[in-house]
Design a binder for these strands. Structure first.
Lengths: 135, 135
DNA sequence: CTGTATCCTACCCGATACTG
DNA sequence: CAGTATCGGGTAGGATACAG
C-alpha cells in the first residue's frame, strides 16, 4: 500500500509554526490532549449529556476534573453549556459545531488506538523481553 | 453541510470500553497525547531525523524529555532507533509503518488545530470578556 | 553527538467535604 | 443535581552537570 503519497499531503500542510515554542495551538492542545479532554468530547459526540451522565459514563473521572475540563472546553467554544432553571438544576452539555468537527478527528484517533492496541501491546512486550532478562 | 451522517459513523465505531477506567489504550494515549508525543511523531513524518535535529526542530523541548519520549515511542513500536557506530555516534530516528499510520491521524489533528486556532482564540476572548469586567 | 543522572519545582489530579 | 473549596501526593517536566 502506498502510504507515502497521501502521507506527504497531510504533513506538508503543517506550518512550521506548530513546532515553535510559542505556537498558539499549544495551550488548546494541552487541554484537548490532556488526560480527559478527548474522552469528554468523544462522550458528547453522540449527543447532549448531563453532568451526571458524563460523570458516570467516563470511568474514573472525578467531579473536579470533569467540571474543570468542561469549563475549559466551553471557554474554547468547543462545548455549550445549557442550564435548565429547575429544582434541582439540570445542566446539559453539548458540542458546538466547532466541537463537532473536532470530535470527528478525535473519534478517528480513538478508533486508531482501539484498532491498534494489540500491535502496540505486542511491541511493548517484545521490547520489554529484549534486554530485561539480563537484569 | 450534513455533518451528522458521517459523524454517526465515526463515533459509533468506538467500543464502550474506551471510556472504561482500565481501558488498555489509556497508557498509550497518555504518551502520544502527552506534551511532546504528537509533535515528535509529526516531526518524524517527513522522514528520518537525528536526535539533535529533533531537538532543535521542536521548540522548547529539553534533552531529557526528548530522550524519554523517544524511548517510549520506540517501546510501543511507533519509532525505530538506528545507531551508526561512528565517532561521534549518530542516532537516527524514523517512523515504523505503525508509527506512520498514526502520524497521519496526528497530522490531521494538528492541521485541524492550526486551521481553527482563530476560531478558538476568538471564542476564548468572547468568554473572558463576558464576566471578568465585573471583577 | 547522544544521551543519562540528579535535583528541584510546578501543577495535575484525586479524595473529601461542603454549598445552592 | 451540579458544582466549588481545600488539602495533599505523585509525577511530569526543566536546568544543569556529567558520561560514553
Amino acid at each position: 500500500m502506498m502510504v507515502s503519497e497521501q502521507f506527504q499531503d497531510v504533513f506538508s500542510q503543517l506550518p512550521a509554526e506548530i513546532f515553535g515554542r510559542d505556537c498558539p495551538t499549544r495551550p488548546v492542545m494541552a487541554q484537548v490532549t490532556g488526560r480527559w479532554g478527548a474522552l469528554i468530547i468523544a462522550a458528547l459526540a453522540p449527543g447532549p449529556m448531563r453532568f451526571s451522565g458524563l460523570h458516570q459514563h467516563i470511568g474514573g473521572i472525578s467531579q473536579k476534573m470533569l467540571s474543570q475540563y468542561l469549563k475549559s472546553l466551553v471557554r474554547y467554544g468547543l462545548v455549550e453549556r445549557l442550564v435548565e432553571p429547575t429544582i434541582p438544576p439540570q445542566v446539559t452539555y453539548s458540542l458546538t459545531p466547532l466541537g463537532q468537527s473536532l470530535a470527528q478527528q478525535l473519534c478517528t484517533l480513538l478508533s486508531w488506538f482501539t484498532a491498534n492496541t494489540p500491535a502496540l501491546e505486542a511491541a511493548q512486550q517484545r521490547y520489554d523481553a529484549a534486554d530485561s532478562p539480563t537484569r
